[in-house]
C-alpha cells in the first residue's frame, strides 16, 4: 500500500503528461472537429492537473475557469454555428505534412538534448514563497503590488477585445 502510494505520488506527473500528449495528438489528428474540441477540453483539464502537481493551485483553477469554462465553450458554439459538414469531404492533410512533421521532430529532439545538457540544479523539495499561505494569496499579493501596471493593461486589453469581437461579428447596419 505504502509503496503504491509513493509510486503514485512520484509518477502522477508522468502519467498526467503522457495522457496530455495523447489528447493533444487527438486535437490535431481528429477528422471530426467536434472530437478535436473534446480532446482539447480533456487536454486543458489535464494541464490543470499538471499545474496542481506543480504547486500552483490558483493557476490550475484559473485554467479550468478560463479554458474549460470559457474558451472551449466559444469553440463549441462556433463549431455548432458554422456548417462544418461541407468540409468533411476535404483532405485532412496536404503535401507538406511529412516535411513539417520531420522538421518538428528534429526541433524537439535538438531542444531536448539542449535541455538535458543544461544544469538546472536540484529540484527544491519545498517552495516557501509560493506555498506560504497558498499560492492564491501569494499571487494576489504580487498582482496587486509589483505587477499592478501589467494587470491594469491586461484589463484594458480584455476591454479592447470585447469591443473588437463585437465589431467584427456585428452585422453592418445600413444608415
Amino acid at each position: 500500500m505504502e509503496a503504491l502510494i509513493s509510486f503514485f505520488s512520484h509518477y502522477m506527473l508522468y502519467i498526467l503528461m503522457g495522457v496530455t500528449i495523447l489528447t493533444a495528438v487527438g486535437v490535431v489528428y481528429s477528422k471530426n472537429a467536434v472530437h478535436s474540441v473534446v480532446a482539447l477540453l480533456l487536454t486543458m483539464i489535464l494541464v490543470a492537473g499538471i499545474y496542481l502537481m506543480l504547486d500552483a493551485e490558483f493557476i490550475a483553477v484559473v485554467q479550468l475557469l478560463v479554458y474549460a469554462g470559457g474558451i472551449i465553450v466559444l469553440f463549441v458554439f462556433m463549431l455548432l454555428l458554422v456548417a462544418l459538414h461541407k468540409d468533411e469531404a476535404l483532405r485532412l492533410f496536404n503535401t507538406y505534412t511529412m516535411i513539417s512533421l520531420g522538421l518538428i521532430a528534429f526541433l524537439v529532439i535538438v531542444l531536448a538534448v539542449v535541455f538535458f545538457g543544461t544544469p538546472f540544479g536540484p529540484v527544491p523539495e519545498t517552495v516557501t514563497h509560493i506555498v506560504k499561505g497558498g499560492s492564491t494569496e501569494a499571487v494576489a499579493g504580487a498582482l496587486y503590488s509589483t505587477y499592478i501596471l501589467p494587470f491594469e493593461i491586461a484589463s484594458v486589453l480584455l476591454l479592447v477585445v470585447m469591443v473588437g469581437a463585437i465589431v467584427l461579428t456585428k452585422e453592418r447596419v445600413k444608415l
Binding site: 473534446v38 477540453l41 493551485e57 484559473v62 463549441v76 492564491t136
Partner: peptide, 26 residues
C-alpha cells in the same frame, strides 16, 4: 478543506455544461 474551495466549485461546475452541449449535439 481547500483554501480555494469556492473557486474550485466554480471551476469544476463550469465543466459540467459540456455534458449538455455535447449530448445535444451528438
Amino acid at each position: 478543506d481547500l483554501n480555494i474551495g469556492l473557486l474550485y466549485i466554480l471551476a469544476i461546475s463550469s465543466v459540467g455544461i459540456y455534458g449538455i452541449l455535447l449530448g445535444g449535439w451528438s
